[in-house]
Amino acid sequence: MAIVTAPRASVREDSIRRPGKPGEKRFGLGRIVAFAILILLAVTWLLPIAWAVATSLQTEADAGSAPVSWVGETGVTFAAYAKLLAEGNVPLWAVNSVLSSVAITLITVGTSAMAAYAFSRLDFRGRKWLYAISIASIMVPPQVLIIPLYYQMLAFNMVDTYWGLILPQVIAPAMVFILKKFFDQLPVELEEAARVDGATRLRVFWSIVLPLSRPILAAVSIFVFIGAWNNFLWPFLVINDTTLMTLPVGLQTVKSAFGVQYAENMAMSILAALPLIVLFLFFQRQIIKGIATTGFGGT
């Protein structure tokens, strides 16, 4: 079902497509109304983040006293950010988030690509069954497995370890499915030529298949990375040690000893959101393409 990398499905950057008809270029009433609605929607969607940024730049006293406003009475301050960065928890959680998300992405994409290649190209006993079971498991929401998985972590002594954080998050049958569909469409001639020249399967996979698959691998990686970076439930369950927490878990679990700190809360939110937003600003096209091509297959 995945709309696999059909170049059509990719999102084009700047070609103005739809009104490509004569007489439509003028700003008719319809376009003005459309424009107005669009602006209204965009403003609505941007306001919450803008408000969070505004709050994070106030003193706690300003943020916590009515009437609230865009700029605090005492002006703009980076105090909340400075405090968070100095206290150490947030940078520590950021490191955990980076390490675990990168590890999850590499392992997921690596193992999924290999399995997909096996399913696509190699003839081995049990292949059909294994593929069927893998694909059927797409239907199992990971959330319904939290109890037995946690029990397993207890048995393996993996609670409060990086292993427990990472390994249960690296199984993505949907990505295997997407990658297999892609491999199926790759021309087989190159590989056969290399095989005739004596290249091993691994060599063919590494030097021919993977390079040809860059766009889809990028798409899958982006999808997996965003999911891992933002995942809450599993890291929340398996990590209790505050020094091992990821950003989303730490933000939720650890509170200030001084009660609710609005400015600090918002500053933490912005800090946690910043890495992905910056990545998005740099790689907007790739990320959108990644989501669009992978989104239909990932559940």
Binding site: V159, D160, N240, D241, K255
Partner: peptide, 22 residues
């Protein structure tokens, strides 16, 4: 010291941490 959210969330986390052994 680590401050956790008062009430059920705290007790849930404390039990999970104890069950986890670390």
């Amino acid at each position: 010291q680590t401050v956790l959210t008062w009430g059920p969330p705290y007790y849930t986390k404390l039990a999970m941490a104890s069950a986890g052994g670390r």
